[in-house]
Simulated scan of single mutants.
Amino acid sequence: MKNVIPFLLCSLLLQSCDSQTKKINAISFVASREQVNQEHLDPIVKLNANYAAVMPFGFIRDLASPEVLFNTDRQWFGERKEGVTQYVEQLHANGIAVMMKPQIWIRRGEFTGYLKMTTEEDWKVFEESYQDFILTFAEVAAETDVALFCIGTELEQFIIERPQFWNTLIAEIKKVYKGKLTYAANWDEYKRVPFWEQLDYIGVDAYFPVSESKTPTVAEARQGWQPWKKELKEVSEENNRPILFTEYGYRSVDFSGKEPWKSEREMPGLNLEAQTNLTKAIFEEMYPENWFAGGFIWKWFINHKEAGGMENHMFTPQNKPVEDIIRQHFKETR
């Protein structure tokens, strides 16, 4: 009997450690005009990703427009039902799980968090239109057996103004789709989302400011994460739900840790080292935490050979030094 208790303790510890290392190692797979084929998927497999977000889009004319236009012939293949289904099936065939993440795009790229109707009549039209959009893709998610469904992305004013709608929407989604649910809250919104206990993950688009340096070191960026980690852990414990980064990533530009949400094309100062160091800091600070489920890197384009590169200053890690960092980290934590 002397050896039984130590053996059991070792087994439990190994199980605990194993469960903590199985993270969601994911990319945000950008929709395209074309069908996805194996050549498009091989780089994701080689990245050691175990999840991908598939993102059908609905379009709105402006911040006060109540109609969501979606699944139309004018949209790209990967944004419509047929394309989403094809993407999911091909990802599944490669052993990659999927989060379906329907998103709204407002003309001229206005921030969805400000989306707000001005009359009760428009609110009702918008609610009906948005529910139709979400339930359409919840049905696709059920039909294709995706592992995770995201009910919305960065819609703070919509949630503040119409809380009952969201309770009803979640109940309607659960009638259609039986997998796990999340919502992608902006980094400065997630603490105020009232319905986390109805979902499985606290989704955060993690563009937290962590450094004001032109080229932050890994150590500096890790230090910058400390107050945010404390806050994230508290919200996780309060709601008894793990944190999932529904988006995270950095531009390969100077000062990219200062306001990581910025995406203006004219941002100056190509800086691949800043992107690499900031990404390393997330891996080193967040992934060891058992309340952290993993995350979806923003963003990954279908034609890998043509994407990113050493002169590219946008978010994608493709064909940049940070891609190798991601590949190694995903290998170690899959």
Results as ranks from 00 to 15, higher is better:
V125T: 15
T215Y: 06
E79H: 08
Y177F: 14
H92N: 07
Q15P: 00
V36L: 12
D42N: 13
A31I: 00
D324I: 05
E284K: 11
E247D: 07
A307W: 05
E238H: 05
L278T: 14
E306K: 12
V4G: 00
R107F: 02
V88C: 08
V146Q: 10
D145Y: 07
S19C: 09
K124F: 00
L63A: 11
S28N: 13
N94A: 14
K46F: 03
E139G: 04
V54H: 10
E120F: 01
I104R: 09
L12A: 12
Q38M: 06
Y87I: 01
V146T: 12
M267Y: 08
E238C: 01
K101E: 03
I243D: 08
A64T: 15
Q318M: 05
V176E: 05
S16L: 14
E285P: 01
N312Q: 08
R80H: 06
E247T: 03
C150W: 05
G269H: 11
N239T: 01
D188H: 12
S213K: 14
E332C: 02
A49C: 09
Q226C: 03
I96N: 11
S236D: 11
A142L: 03
V4N: 00
E289C: 13
A64N: 15
P227H: 06
E323W: 06
E247A: 08
P288F: 07
E289D: 15
Q90L: 11
N277S: 07
M310E: 09
F133C: 07
M1D: 13
V84A: 14
V98S: 10
L91C: 01
T144M: 03
E154I: 02
Y287M: 13
I170V: 15
R265L: 12
